[in-house]
């Protein structure tokens, strides 16, 4: 029972990180049709910001979180303005390739400007403690992750449901051209989508680096591929779908980690992705996606 609760906590904290990333991706995709490969590099930048403030200033934990989140925000906004504005309204393939190129160029820049090797990020020792909750030993990092994920998702939901801008975002996600005809400002909606995706990537970067203790130029790649596949599994373009997909992928990974025999553990990532592809065989439009147009 204890073991099960612990695995559940692991699954929620890992799935939560995927959900944050997938939600950011889905938000940008649903509004401008961009599958943003460079989302992972926003996360990497957040990680480098954490490294910078801890090594240079020995900053306290709240400052480290703020650094990661703000860097994600600024990086996402700059990326939209510089790289993606020229291809706005272009085909999905054009935007996809643009973001692919941006992603690779950023990775190479990190290698040259910072270092090709991982940089250690030292967080306060309290973060790696284990505390008893209701008779079960739970890591502080996992607990932080769950709280931060739930708070972020709650705030995003409030924003999308209660504010004018949030409601225009949902309208734009449904049908961008009609939303524009209703007087919704395209630039504002697109910038907000990138801002939110950047904030979420910053939170995800903090949680990811806090667990692993280091940041390297290619750090964003693996989580971003998983977040992509999570958003496809949830239904590409569906915001709740992205969150659900992220959590499902987290559960699948933790359950495989717990139950796969030792010899099969190297194949864990392959197995979880294969399960996702099998789910797509059953529901090609994703768990919460709308079926394709019928002829």
């Amino acid at each position: 029972m204890d073991l099960f609760v612990q695995q559940l906590v692991n699954a929620i904290s890992l799935g939560g990180v995927y959900a944050l990333l997938a939600l950011g991706l889905a938000m940008v995709f649903s509004i401008m049709g961009l599958v943003n490969f460079a989302h992972g590099e926003i996360m990497t930048l957040g990680g480098y910001a954490m490294w910078f403030v801890t090594v240079q200033f020995g900053a306290p934990l709240p400052v480290v979180v703020a650094a990661s989140v703000l860097t994600g925000l600024v990086a996402a906004l700059l990326m939209e303005r510089i790289a993606f504005r020229p291809v706005r309204g272009a085909s999905v393939v054009t935007m996809l390739l643009t973001s692919f190129a941006v992603s690779v160029m950023l990775q190479v820049t990190f290698q040259n400007v910072i270092s090709p090797r991982p940089k250690g990020v030292q967080l306060p020792p309290e973060m790696s403690r284990v505390i008893p909750v209701l008779g079960v030993e739970i890591g502080v990092i996992q607990l932080t992750a769950i709280v931060m994920v739930l708070v972020s998702l709650g705030l995003i939901m409030l924003f999308l449901r209660r504010t004018t801008l949030g409601i225009s975002m949902r309208a734009a996600a449904q049908d961008f051209s009609v939303a524009r005809l209703m007087g919704i400002h395209a630039d504002a909606v697109v910038a907000t989508a990138f801002a939110i995706s950047g904030l979420l990537a910053g939170v995800a970067a903090f949680l990811w680096v806090a667990q692993r203790g280091s940041v390297d130029p290619g750090m964003g790649l693996t989580p971003i591929i998983k977040a992509f596949i999570a958003s496809v599994m949830g239904g590409l373009g569906s915001l709740p779908g992205a969150v659900v997909g992220g959590f499902v992928l987290g559960f699948v990974e933790i359950m495989l980690q717990a139950w796969l025999p030792q010899a099969a553990l190297p194949f864990k990532d392959a197995a979880s992705l294969a399960i996702v592809i099998a789910i797509l065989l059953w529901r090609p439009q994703g768990l919460l996606g709308r079926a394709a147009d019928r002829v």
């Binding site: 995709f29 992509f228 958003s231 496809v232 590409l236 373009g237 996702v276 592809i277 797509l280 994703g286």
Partner: peptide, 13 residues
Amino acid sequence: RLSAAATPIATLA
């Protein structure tokens, strides 16, 4: 069977 936008991501997987 996937949509044209989801296929690139699935090939990455």
